[in-house]
């Protein structure tokens, strides 16, 4: 599989980018949107793992490279798990409750891409302020 041109090298680079994607996003400091997902026992029991998977898939499908997903602990809203907070740069964080796979996709397609809130799932506290 000897590489014989810059184009071939660039193809390998694009394929390899995924290996280092988590790190690169983790190290970026500016312009990153953070999606915090409650991954405590209550969250996981309510399906946070599936929610997180859906978030990853939706981000991948939308081709977003400025969003990172951070797994966090429980904030006491066990009745509304899984909880997901969206923190966009220079905007107030927004917290959603009862986020199943469908809502997770909507968070990406509506909230992040179109700036529309998913009103039925809004909670009035955030991980930062709770």
């Amino acid at each position: 599989m000897a590489i014989k041109s810059l184009e071939e090298l660039k193809k390998i680079r694009e394929a390899s980018k995924k290996k280092v994607d988590l790190r690169e996003k983790g190290e970026s400091t500016e312009g990153m949107t953070e999606i915090l997902i409650g991954m405590a026992t209550c969250g996981i029991a309510a399906g946070a793992r599936e929610t997180m998977k859906a978030l990853y898939e939706a981000i991948d499908e939308a081709g977003l490279d400025n969003v990172r997903i951070i797994q966090v602990g429980c904030m006491g809203y066990c009745h509304s798990e899984p909880t997901v907070q969206v923190s966009q740069p220079s905007k107030a964080p927004v917290l959603y409750g009862k986020v199943d796979e469908q809502i997770a996709r909507e968070i990406i397609t509506k909230h992040i891409l179109k700036d529309e809130f998913i009103d039925d799932h809004l909670l009035n506290k955030t991980f930062v302020k709770a």
Binding site: R13, S16, K19, V20
Partner: peptide
Amino acid sequence: EEYIAFNGYEALGI
């Protein structure tokens, strides 16, 4: 591959 992901061997190619 991780080295290539951060523009490794591009300088040599250029």
